[in-house]
Design a protein around this nucleic acid. Structure first.
Lengths: 179, 179
DNA sequence: TGCTCCATGTAACACGTTACATGATTGC
DNA sequence: GCAATCATGTAACGTGTTACATGGAGCA
């Protein structure tokens, strides 16, 4: 049950509409907690009913249906509560590994094309993370303030993850291609 | 939709009862695709209805309710189809990273205890993987046959993952504890 | 006029989680 | 006799996924 809290976090970072939230999700928190726009609209409605957030018509709405949301005190309290609460570490759900085991037991399944696809996707994602890092965290002599240091560390987690996937995938490719 | 295929794979590796399957899951495929016993019973019933597997009373059943399952040709075909089929890479769902972002935007949330818990859990998991590796893959001079090499590589993926989590967690701990 | 993008939603369903039910067998 | 474990399930619910609906705004 982390999606509402991910949404609260994103709203605290910048209070916007559900639509923009859904789009920003894809490029930030969504890397670590993906969500579709339908899920986000559903959670926004629930959280407004629960009194964690409130909606208002933004000044620049004009004749559009645009609604903005902002976090209320109750939402902030709830987020702080959840953040300190112990939770199980995420569990992996890695279909490629299952496929690899299936290949081992079946034999005669050519996994290489699928593996190449994955390597390409992870390589692309890694490149994107590196681009973001180069833009947002240019090398400096001085240590970053806490908030920025945390954000950099989060980005580095994504980078580490992709690097690991790629290194492992290359080892697998060598094995599958071997004589 | 990978759970049925994970179950098929496990059944091909060793055809057993739902109960044993659920217990073996926890210690093998479940590391990469977790499932509760209820999910497994549900999938077994569905797959039997679909003609992918069949149940039979094992010779050693006695008066128990024990049922065994074995994979039919249709199930084997389906598994091969799914294995070669392209699929999106797994997506991360990492609550700790979300909590970290929440901490950055809220301030004044003490994440250290939660981080320590995670470090302890990942360290324990890593130790278990290493124990399995030492038992099942003792160092030899000769390269392993393909099936075993694949199984070793799968285990190494788990090890790499845990090592990454621990290394990152230690970096985070340094940051959170820093002055 | 027709197309794309903005913006918010409803509905149905599949999958995952949690709690509970049932009865037999094994070990003390 | 009692508790723990074996063994299979039902039921209810919550989250995630997919398809579709609605209507305005901007542009060629």
């Amino acid at each position: 049950m982390s999606l509402p809290h991910a949404v609260l976090t994103s709203l605290l970072e910048k209070s916007t509409s559900g639509y923009d939230l859904a789009r920003r999700f894809d490029k930030s928190i969504g890397y670590f907690w993906p969500a579709t726009h339908q899920q986000i609209y559903r959670e926004l409605a629930r959280m407004e009913a629960a009194g964690w957030i409130e909606s208002f018509v933004p000044p620049d709405a004009g004749k559009t249906r645009k609604k903005h949301y902002r976090v209320l005190a109750a939402g902030r309290t709830e987020l702080a509560r959840w953040t300190a609460e112990p939770a199980a570490p995420m569990d992996l759900r890695d279909a490629l590994t299952v496929k690899l085991r299936a290949d081992a037991v079946l034999g005669e399944v050519d996994l290489l094309p699928e593996l190449q696809r994955h390597l390409a996707l992870h390589t692309a994602q890694l490149a994107q993370y590196r681009r973001i890092e180069a833009e947002d965290f240019p090398p400096t002599a001085h240590p970053l303030p806490r908030t920025q240091a945390i954000q950099h560390l989060i980005l580095q987690k994504g980078i580490l993850y992709e690097e690991g996937e790629i290194a492992w995938g290359q080892a697998l490719r060598t094995l599958l291609q071997g004589p």
